[in-house]
Every structure is written in structure tokens, then in C-alpha cells.
């Protein structure tokens, strides 16, 4: 029983909502109908672009060899080094805490302090799948402005962290 519950738990909201829609329409419950209309609008909005976005991301995944970039990353310095860590970050997916293990890998490979934090910044705000969803929901203008303002700021944070940690024995632990 407990195992069964665990299996259906993610679907409970959907089930309850389906019942709610049904009841709203049977009893002509006006708020329910308005909510349903809201939901239908956002569902259509989502279903008309998200699946296509993920197909694009999937193709990207197959054609751009993330592992290869990862292998070559490390000691490059200057603009090239920054460019490579940002590119690597853009190809990732998932929440920020998923970036910490990669940061520790970068550290082990000898990447500079600055580049490690630039990687985290780029990971948080420039991931390609997320940019795709952001453009879909908030528009290209919002996405572009936010990205262009963020970029110099987290590069600046990278420099700041490096300056601050320069002779402080900085390590990234491996868990």
C-alpha cells in the first residue's frame, strides 16, 4: 500500500484537479471554470513549444560533445579559458547544486579560482535549455537583457573571488 502510494504521489495533484474540473462543469461552479480556462491557456502555451525545445536540446546533446570539452578544460587562461568554462556551463542542465561536483572536477584539473566561479555563474544563468524556456515565457528581449547584464556581473564575481581567495588556501572538496 505504501509503495503504491509512493508511485502515484506525483500524480495526485493532477487527479484532484481533473475531478475539480469535472465537478466545476457539472455544477456550473464559475470560479472553477475560470481556473480551468487559465489552466487550458497555459497548457496550450506550454505544449506548443516545450516539446520542440527539448528535441532541439536533445540534438544539441548528441552533436556537441560535452565530455570532449570537459576533457580539454583546465589550464587555459585569459579570454579563451573564460569562454570555454562558459560554453561548458551552457551545455549543462539541472539545478545549481549539480554544478558543485563539476566545480570540484575543474579544480582538480587545475582551473583557476576565477574560472571556477565563472562556471558557477554561467551554470546558474546561461544554460541553453533554460534560456530556451525563458525566451518562450518571458520573451527574447527580457532574456537578452537579463543575460547581457548578468554576464559581466558573474565574470566580475569570478575576479573578485580570485582576488579575495588568492592567498587563502582555496580548495574545492570532493564528496
Amino acid at each position: 500500500m505504501k509503495k503504491y502510494f509512493k508511485k502515484i504521489r506525483p500524480y495526485i495533484t493532477l487527479l484532484v484537479f481533473a475531478v475539480f474540473i469535472l465537478v466545476s462543469f457539472v455544477f456550473q461552479f464559475q470560479p472553477g471554470k475560470t481556473i480551468t480556462a487559465n489552466f487550458t491557456d497555459s497548457l496550450i502555451e506550454m505544449i506548443t513549444f516545450i516539446p520542440f525545445l527539448f528535441i532541439i536540446v536533445g540534438l544539441f546533446d548528441v552533436w556537441v560533445p560535452k565530455e570532449k570539452i570537459q576533457r580539454h578544460i583546465g589550464q587555459e587562461s585569459g579570454i579563451k579559458g573564460i569562454g570555454i568554462v562558459i560554453l561548458l556551463a551552457m551545455l549543462q542542465a539541472g539545478p545549481l547544486y549539480g554544478a558543485f561536483p563539476v566545480a570540484s572536477m575543474l579544480y582538480k584539473k587545475g582551473a583557476s579560482i576565477k574560472n571556477i566561479f565563472i562556471y558557477l555563474g554561467a551554470f546558474a544563468s546561461l544554460k541553453i535549455p533554460m534560456l530556451g524556456i525563458e525566451i518562450g515565457y518571458l520573451g527574447i528581449k527580457f532574456t537578452l537583457v537579463r543575460t547581457l547584464v548578468s554576464l559581466p556581473l558573474f565574470i566580475g564575481i569570478g575576479y573578485l573571488m580570485e582576488w579575495y581567495l588568492k592567498d587563502k588556501n582555496f580548495v574545492v572538496h570532493e564528496l
Binding site: P51, F54, V57, G58
Partner: peptide
């Protein structure tokens, strides 16, 4: 690639619907 994309979509579908 198509399969990967589809799987990613499938993984987010239920949480996405819930949030909508």
C-alpha cells in the same frame, strides 16, 4: 537526440503540469 529530448520532456511533464 530525439529520444533524449523526448525523455527530458517526459521527465518534466508531471511536475510541469502540477505547477501550471
Amino acid at each position: 537526440g530525439l529520444k533524449r529530448g523526448w525523455n527530458m520532456f517526459k521527465n518534466i511533464l508531471v511536475p510541469f503540469l502540477t505547477i501550471l
